[in-house]
Design a protein around this nucleic acid. Structure first.
Length: 594
DNA sequence: TTAGGGTTAG
């Protein structure tokens, strides 16, 4: 390969010393000294004898400075960078918030016929994983094989991570299965791949496999975080507690990531007291993620005011909130109907914390206004937003319109959604509920026909309930469970008791009829009712019941669950797609406002 | 003188 043959610089050793100094005391002033020295001696900063050291030092030791544009400007002046220099600059970008230049630098590397080494592909695949650049990553997958890296455990591990990050956990698993050699990182990558892609049961199964089949690996903090994420997703409290005991025994509890995951686990299982206990025990290791997890957990569980109080304490402790913390704070305002507070926090987001509000923050404001019944104001907010509103924002407005029976604006939102995200079944459900709530039955039926004609199918609802060491899943009209007959008998018994309490079904959620027609028989029970019946049958009287649902609770099920909590004297917690409902003695913690 | 995996929202 052609090597640069520029003359030896006048004082490279002194400049090298400067770079060494920069490494020991990373600072702007050290960087300035290098520049001053370069100007004084006439040796360009990009001279190959030290440019690569400078780039390496910048990327490794000064990540908080606006390093990458500067490193890139030096890099682009190097005539023939070697593989180490290419790797370094690619690494820098793969670690930065915007890794896409890593891929263009790789193209330059290919054009210059510099062969990749075992370090190059992991950096590049990490960049692709961050960007979710599937096609680029797949090309790298092929290229890495051609270059003879199919047995490199580093490259293969990053491939597992890459496919999982792109949502293709099956591809990730395929790479994993073909690996001749695996280590802890391999297992963690594949377990996390399943945990992140809504397959928590598979994640837990793989963990068992790892423990039984691979004697060479011992789980670490990364493994625990993945398992806790999976348990939190499932709402599997008992299983999560077992993981907690396990990691405590293994001494993995002094790890901020693990402890933060524990806060999230307990909050997502509706056990905010336990979440708080972990938070209190953290002391030294507590960070902004811990606070954010607790604030979000409190808000989700219906303790909006407490969430805001904790936010105030966090500020007193001079911790700087992140944009996610602020989503949690706005979410808390929204679920408590605190409109003025919401506006105040939104303003402070920019003024005090210098956070550029993202579409999620604007979405929270639309939700806040919409929930509070200020639907017109919510619409004005959307049309004056500084960025183009996305489908989520319009959907939020449609939801608010359905809640407050505001037909005209609901149809405006629907029109936007038909352009931005046509065929989204949840939007049909919302619009249908809206039509039904104002008695426009002809429109309900027309919408249903359109939905069937265009092949849009309602997303199947499912509910999870944990019993013993297992998590049981129920879908609507489920007859697959071994106890199915008794479950339906139990539902009959419940129906009789409900009627005695004066229950009249709320039929506004008429899209449920679609399933009724499809099923031919009357097994149109919503999944949470099957789960509740199953739990009532299999747990001792007085024991609390916890259900996790993938969709929102419908008005009828909400009413039924309230009544069941009274009739059977049970505390029932339902985590739906966006929040918790704690039912007790005939009422719900959401105060019927969800 | 370089390599791979983690937590919070939607």
């Amino acid at each position: 390969m052609h090597q640069e043959t520029s003359p030896e610089p006048k004082h490279p050793p002194t400049l090298r010393k400067c770079v060494a100094l920069l490494r020991s005391f990373p600072s702007f002033s050290a960087l300035k000294r290098i520049h001053a020295h370069s100007l004084r001696t006439g040796v360009p900063i990009s001279h190959p004898h030290f440019a690569k050291h400078l780039i390496f030092t910048l990327i490794s030791f000064l990540p908080s400075l606006p390093t990458m544009p500067y490193a890139l400007s030096i890099f682009s002046q190097i005539h023939s960078p070697d593989v180490f220099t290419f790797n370094t600059i690619i690494r820098g970008f793969s670690q930065s918030p915007n890794p896409s230049p890593a891929l263009s630098i790789h193209r330059r590397m290919l054009a210059s016929s510099t062969p990749a080494d075992t370090h190059t592909y992991p950096f590049l695949l990490k960049a692709c994983a961050k960007l979710m650049a599937l096609r680029e990553g797949e090309k790298l997958h092929c290229r890495s094989f051609k270059d003879g890296f199919e047995s490199s455990v580093f490259v293969q591990n990053t491939l597992v991570h890459f496919y999982a990050a792109c949502g293709l956990f099956e591809n990730a698993h395929h790479v994993f299965e073909r690996m001749p050699e695996r280590n802890l990182v391999t297992w963690n990558s594949v377990i996390n791949g399943f945990a992140l892609n809504g397959r928590p049961n598979e994640a837990l199964t793989l963990f068992r496999e790892m423990m039984f089949e691979d004697e060479c690996v011992e789980p670490d903090g990364f493994t625990m975080v993945s398992l806790l994420t999976a348990c939190a997703e499932l709402g599997a409290l008992a299983l999560g507690r077992r993981v907690h005991v396990f990691l405590f025994k293994k001494g993995l509890d002094f790890n901020a990531h693990v402890e933060n995951s524990l806060i999230d686990l307990y909050a997502k299982c509706g056990r905010i007291d336990d979440a708080y206990k972990v938070f209190v025990d953290m002391c030294e290791s507590r960070n902004v993620v811990s606070w954010t997890s607790l604030i979000v957990g409190l808000a989700m569980n219906g303790f909006g005011n407490e969430a805001l109080e904790f936010f105030a304490v966090m500020e007193q402790e001079r911790l700087v909130p992140t944009e996610i913390t602020m989503v949690g704070v706005l979410y808390a305002c929204s679920h408590c109907g605190l409109v003025d507070d919401g506006y105040r926090y939104f303003n402070r987001l920019q003024q005090q914390y210098n956070i550029v509000p993202k579409i999620e923050h604007y979405g929270c404001m639309v939700d806040l206004l919409g929930r509070a019944g200020l639907v017109e104001e919510a619409h004005n907010y959307i049309i004056t937003m500084p960025m183009a509103p996305n489908a989520v924002v319009w959907r939020t407005l449609l939801g608010a319109c359905a809640m407050h029976k505001t037909l005209a604006l609901g149809e405006v939102a629907w029109a936007k959604l038909s352009e931005l995200d046509p065929g989204h079944s949840g939007d049909y459900v919302l619009l249908s509920n809206l039509y039904a709530s104002v008695g426009r039955w002809a429109d309900v039926h027309k919408l249903r026909r359109n939905m069937l004609k265009s092949g849009v199918r309602k997303k199947p609802g499912h509910s999870l309930v944990e019993l013993g060491n297992r998590v049981y899943e129920f879908v609507m009209g489920d007859i697959s469970h071994p106890q199915s007959d008794s479950i339906y008998e139990m539902l009959e018994e419940i129906a009789v008791k409900l009627r005695l309490q004066g229950y009249i079904p709320r039929t506004t959620n008429v899209l449920a009829d679609i399933e009724e027609e499809e099923k031919e028989n009357a097994l149109n029970y919503h999944s949470e009712r099957l789960a509740i019946a199953f739990a009532l049958m299999n747990t001792s009287p007085g024991m609390p019941i916890r259900i996790v649902k993938n969709l929102r609770v419908c008005a009828d099920c909400h009413l039924v669950t309230k009544l069941i909590s009274k009739i059977y004297d049970r505390e029932i917690t339902v985590r739906d797609r966006s929040r918790f409902h704690h039912f007790r003695d005939g009422s719900c913690s959401c105060k019927d406002y969800w």
